[in-house]
Computed example of a mutant assay.
Amino acid sequence: MRNLPLGISDFSTIRNPSRNFIYIDKTAQIAEMVRMFPAVFIARPRRFGKSLLASTLRDLFGKGIEGFEGLDIAKTWTDTTYKVVSLDFSAFRDVGTLEDFLLAFDLHLQGRLRAAGIETSPDVSRFPLQRWETALLSLPNSSLVLLIDEYDAPLTECLHLPERFEQYRRVIASFFARTKSLSGALRFLCVTGVMKFKQNVLTPSFNALTDLSMMPQYGSLLGFTEDELRTNFSTWLERASDLCGMSHDQLISRMRREYGGFCFDQNASTDVFAPWSVLQFLACPQPDFQHYGLNPGGTTAIVRNFLKVRGLLDPAHYDEPFLEDLTVIASDDPILELQPTSVLVHTGYLTIKKATGDGAVMLGYPNEEVREAMGNLCSLHR
Rank of each mutant, 00 (worst) to 15 (best):
S220M: 09
V194Y: 00
L155Y: 04
L155C: 07
H160P: 00
R112P: 04
T210N: 14
F224C: 12
I118F: 03
G117T: 04
V145Q: 10
P162L: 02
P122R: 13
P122W: 15
R114T: 07
L137A: 11
T97Y: 05
F105P: 12
Y151A: 03
S143W: 09
L109S: 12
D123Q: 09
D123P: 15
Q217N: 15
T120P: 09
S181P: 02
F127Q: 11
L113T: 14
F188H: 00
P154F: 02
G223H: 06
T156F: 05
L209Q: 07
S125Q: 15
D149W: 08
S121K: 15
F105I: 09
L109K: 05
L103R: 07
E163V: 07
H108T: 14
H108Q: 14
P128Q: 14
A185Y: 00
S213G: 14
L137G: 13
T210H: 15
L186P: 04
L146C: 08
K180S: 10
L144I: 05
L136C: 12
R164D: 01
T156W: 01
V201Q: 07
T156I: 05
D123E: 15
P140V: 11
L182S: 08
A115M: 13
S121I: 12
A104N: 11
D123L: 13
L159I: 00
R169K: 06
R164P: 06
R178Y: 03
S143Y: 06
G96D: 08
R126P: 04
P122L: 15
L202V: 05
L222H: 00
L159H: 01
P140K: 05
C158A: 05
G117Y: 06
F105L: 11
S181C: 02
D149H: 08
V124R: 12
F105V: 11
E166S: 07
H108S: 15
D100E: 11
W132R: 11
E226T: 05
K198L: 02
R131T: 15
P162T: 00
Y218F: 03
L186W: 04
P204S: 03
A185H: 00
G193S: 01
P128S: 15
K196D: 00
L202H: 07
V194G: 00
V124L: 11
T210C: 13
T97D: 13
R170L: 07
Y218P: 14
S143Q: 11
T134Q: 13
Y218T: 09
Q130Y: 14
R164S: 04
A135V: 08
V171A: 04
F188N: 01
K196F: 01
L186V: 02
E99S: 12
A115C: 09
P154Q: 00
N207H: 08
F206V: 13
P216S: 12
Q167C: 02
Y218N: 07
K180Y: 09
S138W: 13
F127P: 07
P154T: 02
A116L: 12
P154M: 00
S213I: 00
A135T: 13
D152W: 05
L129F: 14
Y151W: 09
T179W: 02
E99K: 09
E99L: 07
P216L: 05
P204K: 09
E150D: 04
S174H: 09
T192V: 02
L107D: 10
I118V: 10
F165K: 01
T210R: 11
C158M: 04
I172P: 09
T225R: 07
F176M: 06
L98H: 10
A177N: 06
F197G: 01
Q130I: 14
E163P: 00
R131K: 14
L146V: 11
N141Q: 11
L189A: 03
T97K: 11
L144D: 02
